[in-house]
Design a protein around this nucleic acid. Structure first.
Length: 807
DNA sequence: TCCTCCCGCCAAGCA
DNA sequence: TGCTTGGCGGGAGGA
């Protein structure tokens, strides 16, 4: 026996070149020669002619030949295996890379022209391909399935596909983009990213459940294959496994690229979205892993098609694999009717007369034959909880005393706050008796553009139109700034000169404009600004220019705020050593938006969502929709402070004009913020607005029993904080005061003095960065027994970086 | 160590 | 009933 020579590790070479070496061992089957020359009989002639004319017969014959030769190959292989040493044989095998699906796909694609001429259809015979490429059939299915999802091939029959090439690609991509938009993938991506950050520091939470519900019902999850008219989909198991099919997954994956900007999608996010649509309730690690594996398969094929390219997105949390769209730019749908996506399950191709949206919905949720969306169970819960709220409110034993906002107009701003504190609470109660319908009507009157959409409105509590709001411009315009992530809303007093920059309408948060404010809508800002946010966050999403209807807005800031702050508090008590990091993360998350810079103003925290209604809030959050029936409350100081009805137990201390400050606001919040025009503030101008003195604050706190006598709470952080925040142009501070059942009062001061020039674009990077040291938060907790707790933490450094590196 | 993804089992569905 | 199709996850190569 001769020692076999070491061969180049390619299967082809192995199979072809080693054959001679086996000869001494086994008698190789006689190679099939050209068939013995039949005499040219009419029969044989006819046979040949038929063979030439019919590709079917030809291929069958080829197959027969191939199977013969493949049996030879197998024999050879076996022979090799037997006679080569184990190691050597292994080495002789193609490496993993050489067997990769991507490479295989390259080989596969090389067989067919990108743009085959329509006159001559190329047929794909799977057996042929598997033989020629020396791969298992299973692998070819992976490729073909992805190609099928792009309508580059379509199945003819068992074992047979037609090759379309890239002819259909533009239409397919356009259809996919449309369906992706309809399916609100942008919002889903956004939400996932948000949850990711929450989950990071609170893995035990019920996020999965929440996420599951926010992804919509199982009905919605059954998005089926998007078809093009004329490209029929004939999967073998079309009725069975289609929803989990690689085809559908592939289409969804592509949709993610098409709807997001920048067109980078991380595998993690994609997997979550795909799982989310596939019943996220039972999300576990293995399912996630499986999804990721499939996505790699799809990505390999898409990469071979040069539609995507692998990149890495580096965030603070590490390097994440992602893919970047490198395929053709897909223009907005202009002639949808022709390119309409249809669904396999929705049997006949949809007629062109049906409006496009309807068609898409049909395509997406066809199986029930419904044309409309059904209400998700969580929405039903929500509605119930809202009704409960309303019932409670309306059956409140105390008759609310109506306090006209004008009553307060003549009163001095700050001292009045203290004096009127009980009245504020009362007044807030009064606000509850107003129904949401009333509010909506008013809102509608004020700005039809911002009429809340019942199923998508999320922060109406903060955006209800305000009653009795004088039309006159105040010198200081309070802006209710919800901060959904942090859970604390702020009333921000802006100089009228800046108030005009506040938009009336934020599709992202569904806030409503005030009927009386001197507001100029800057709609276009939103999308740009949000783009920035998401890009900075590290990857993929963008808000499209069209108004965003849902999922982002489905989040419940008040709920989240409540749970987050509670958890944060608990954590700070339980794990002091972890507190700083976790708190940092919380706060970072809570401020994960880019910012708009306002040169002056006052920041007044409005807490909301108390312990008392955690459950309700939670339900609402799950529903992804916030009550539209929340009622606005009037405050003698801010004029009216919108506030959810569910916040009965919270008493705001609204007039905490802590210090004049330069506020950097999250633009989405700003965009969402209604501007209040408050005549009671007419008496004060930005420059002359009275700042509450420390003693006044302490007096107030003592007065209302939040802190025991003798305890002094520093008010002006600039004076008390050991950080270099003396700079006049930037001194950020906020005070968060909430009086809840446990009488926990927390002040958070974040003095910061960025040295960087305060250009808006710089702000996005430098928000709350304190060059002089970490931002300091002082939390002072005054319990009902009068004891206090203080804690410090580093705050607000949401400098999320995005680095996209290509491999 | 973790990312990547090959590999093949096995079940659903079709002819 | 045999064959095709394809979901799925173990586990190994590679970075």
């Amino acid at each position: 026996l001769k020692t076999p020579l070491k061969q180049v590790a390619t299967s082809q070479l192995v199979l072809t070149e080693r054959q001679p070496e086996c000869q001494p061992l086994t008698t190789p089957p006689k190679p099939k020669e050209t068939p013995p020359a039949d005499p040219w009989t009419p029969t044989s002639n006819l046979k040949m002619l038929i063979s030439a004319a019919s590709p079917e017969i030809r291929s069958r014959e080829q197959r027969r030949q191939l199977s013969d030769s493949s049996s030879e190959v197998l024999q050879t292989k076996h022979c090799l295996q037997e006679h080569l040493l184990g190691d050597e044989y292994e080495k002789s095998q193609p490496s993993r890379k050489e067997k990769s699906l991507g490479l295989l796909c390259h080989k596969f694609l090389a067989r067919y022209p990108d743009y085959p001429s329509p006159s001559q259809k190329s047929y794909i015979c799977l057996d042929e391909v598997t033989e020629e490429l020396h791969v298992e059939r299973r692998r070819i299915y992976d490729i073909v399935n992805v190609l099928e999802s792009l309508h580059m091939v379509s199945r003819l029959a068992r074992n047979r596909y037609v090759w379309h090439g890239r002819h259909n690609l533009p239409q397919t991509l356009q259809a996919l983009k449309k369906v992706g938009e309809e399916n609100k993938y942008i919002q889903q991506i956004q939400m996932i990213k948000k949850r990711e950050y929450e989950h990071e520091f609170d893995p035990d939470s019920e996020r999965n459940e929440e996420m599951a519900s926010s992804f919509g019902s199982s009905e919605q999850s059954e998005m089926s294959f998007v078809e093009l008219p004329g490209v029929e989909f004939r999967a073998a198991s079309v009725n069975g496994r289609k929803y989990k099919s690689l085809r559908v997954m592939s289409q969804k994956f592509v949709m993610l690229f098409l709807v997001s900007t920048p067109q980078i999608v991380s595998l993690e996010v994609a997997a979550k979205i795909l799982i989310g649509e596939d019943q996220l309730e039972d999300l576990d690690k293995s399912k996630f892993k499986t999804k990721i594996r499939r996505l790699y398969d799809i990505a390999n094929v898409l990469s071979s098609l040069k539609l995507i390219k692998k990149v890495h997105v580096t965030e603070e949390r590490g390097r994440k694999p992602a893919f970047k769209w490198t395929g053709p730019e897909v223009l907005p749908n202009t002639h949808v009717t022709k390119l309409e996506a249809t669904s396999t399950a929705c049997s006949p191709p949809i007629s062109e007369s049906i409006p496009s949206k309807e068609q898409c919905s049909k395509a997406l949720f066809p199986s029930r034959g419904k044309q409309s969306f059904t209400r998700h169970s969580s929405l039903i819960k929500l509605v119930k909880s809202i009704e409960n709220d309303r019932r409670k409110i309306q059956s409140a034993p105390t008759s609310p005393v109506k306090i006209n906002a004008s009553t307060y107009q003549s009163l001095p701003v700050f001292p009045n706050t203290i004096a009127q504190f009980p009245a504020i609470a009362k007044h807030q109660l009064e606000g509850q008796s107003k129904t949401a319908e009333e509010m909506q009507v008013k809102c509608a009157l004020s700005s039809p553009e911002a009429v809340p959409k019942p199923e998508t409105s999320h922060q109406p509590a903060l955006s209800q139109p305000l009653r009795g709001c004088p039309a006159s411009h105040s010198s200081v315009s309070p802006v209710i700034l919800p901060h959904p992530q942090s859970g604390v809303s702020y009333a921000i007093y802006l100089h009228p000169s800046q108030a005009h920059t506040v938009t009336t309408y934020s599709p992202g948060f569904m806030l409503q404009p005030l009927p009386c404010a001197n507001v100029t809508g800057i709609k276009s800002n939103n999308s740009k600004v949000l783009n920035k946010i998401t890009t900075e966050e590290g990857d993929t999403q963008r808000f499209s220019d069209e108004p965003i209807k849902s999922l982002v807005t489905e989040e419940k800031p008040e709920t989240k705020s409540e749970t987050l702050s509670q958890r944060c508090l608990k954590r700070s008590q339980a794990f002091p050593e972890n507190n700083l990091i976790k708190r940092h993360k919380i706060d970072e998350e809570s401020l994960d938006t880019s910012l708009t810079f306002f040169s002056s103003g006052y920041l007044i925290p409005l807490t909301h969502c108390t312990h008392g209604n955690k459950a309700e809030c939670s339900n609402k959050e799950k529903a992804g929709v916030c009550s539209v029936q929340h009622t606005a409350y009037s405050s003698p100081i801010t004029g009216v402070i919108p506030m959810p009805a569910s916040e009965l137990k919270t008493v705001n201390i609204p007039a905490f004009h802590i210090t004049p400050l330069n506020i950097m606001l999250s633009p989405n919040s700003i965009a969402a913020a209604p501007v209040l025009s408050n005549s009671c503030l007419n008496s004060s101008s930005t420059s002359s607005a009275p700042n509450p003195s420390s003693s006044a604050l302490n007096f107030m706190l003592q007065h209302i029993g939040l802190i025991p006598a003798g305890v002094q709470v520093p008010v002006n952080p600039v004076q008390h904080m050991p950080v270099s925040s003396q700079s006049e142009n930037i001194s950020h501070s906020s005070g968060s005061t909430s009086m809840q059942e446990g009488k926990v009062i927390t002040f958070s001061f974040q003095p910061s003095a960025p040295k960087e020039p305060q250009e808006p674009q710089a702000v996005t990077e430098n928000f709350f960065r304190t060059p002089g040291g970490p931002n300091t938060e002082l939390s002072l907790s005054a319990n009902s027994d009068g004891t206090q707790r203080t804690s410090q933490g580093t705050l607000y450094t949401p400098q999320r970086k995005l680095e996209v590196s290509e491999d």
